[in-house]
Amino acid sequence: MSSALIRTTIQGCILAGVSNLTAQLISSYKSGLPYTIDWTPILQFMFFNLLNTPPNFLWQQFLESAFPSTYTTPTPSAIAAAATNDDKELDREEKKHEILETKLSVPNTLIKFMLDQTIGAAVNTLLFSAAIAGFKGATYQQAVWTARQDFWGLMSAGWKLWPAISALNFAVVRSVEMRQLLGSLAGFGWNIYLSLSTA
């Protein structure tokens, strides 16, 4: 297991626990009841993230390796120097590392975005619903039924947040680990919503 995967999993678990704690505080404030910590949902959210983060990290690695975000191309000045056989200018640009530039691959970014917001989102939504139902004592059949019942509601709620995060991640953030960090930070608010909706 890579150190990046371990760091990402630990950070996901911590943020999940804190988000559930925050949701309990919000719920207590709204109801006017004294604030008492219920450790069960906190540990459940942390445990779910412990199981869910590694496959998501590997999913993001797969997307990046199959559809790289960037490609290299000669710079306009390098093309111009090559067209005029200006070897002196080409040597200067090579020394300054100005011969090639990195550009965003728009087709690959769109493919990753679509796969992440369809297959990735659907799998995560189903697993979350089934896991929470299981934590509450549901049988396998009941957990599957709950996942199916909750699916479109959670997917439509998720599409109000995750497409923007996904687009930002794929278009701007270069490393998978940093994408996971941004996703975890956005997930903090999302987990508060999930905690309140599953309470």
Rank of each mutant, 00 (worst) to 15 (best):
D116Y: 04
N108Y: 08
D38L: 10
R174A: 14
Q44I: 10
E93M: 15
T72H: 04
I132V: 14
G32Q: 06
L90V: 09
W162P: 08
P74Q: 02
V18F: 13
N191A: 09
W39E: 00
S105H: 10
A143Y: 02
L50Q: 00
Q117F: 12
T109C: 13
R148K: 15
L43R: 02
F188M: 12
A82I: 01
F113W: 14
V123W: 09
T9G: 02
A164I: 13
A186V: 09
M155K: 09
L90H: 07
A186Y: 09
G17N: 10
T198P: 00
Y140K: 08
D150K: 14
P68F: 03
T8C: 06
K96V: 03
K103G: 00
A157P: 02
I192D: 03
G153T: 13
V18P: 08
A23W: 09
A186H: 07
L110Y: 06
A186K: 04
S31C: 04
F135N: 08
G134I: 01
A82M: 01
L63G: 00
S3G: 06
P76E: 13
L110F: 12
I99F: 02
W152V: 10
S2I: 12
G17E: 08
A186Q: 04
I165W: 05
N108M: 05
I37Q: 06
F62N: 02
G153N: 13
A121N: 05
I99C: 05
P163S: 07
I42N: 08
A78K: 05
N124P: 00
Q61A: 06
S69A: 15
T84R: 14
F151T: 08
A66S: 14
T9L: 07
W152R: 00
T8E: 11
I192T: 05
L196A: 01
A130Y: 12
T75W: 07
L196S: 00
S129K: 10
T198V: 10
N49C: 12
L110K: 04
A4R: 13
N169G: 12
L21V: 09
S197Y: 12
D86T: 06
V176M: 07
S77W: 01
A199C: 04
I26T: 10
S65L: 11
W190Q: 07
L21M: 14
L21D: 04
L104P: 01
G187E: 12
L33Q: 14
A16V: 08
I119M: 11
Q141P: 00
A16W: 07
W190E: 03
L185V: 15
A157L: 09
Q11S: 08
S197E: 07
N124E: 03
L25W: 14
T139A: 04
I37M: 11
T8L: 01
L185H: 07
W159H: 11
V172Q: 03
I37C: 08
S31H: 11
P76H: 06
E93F: 08
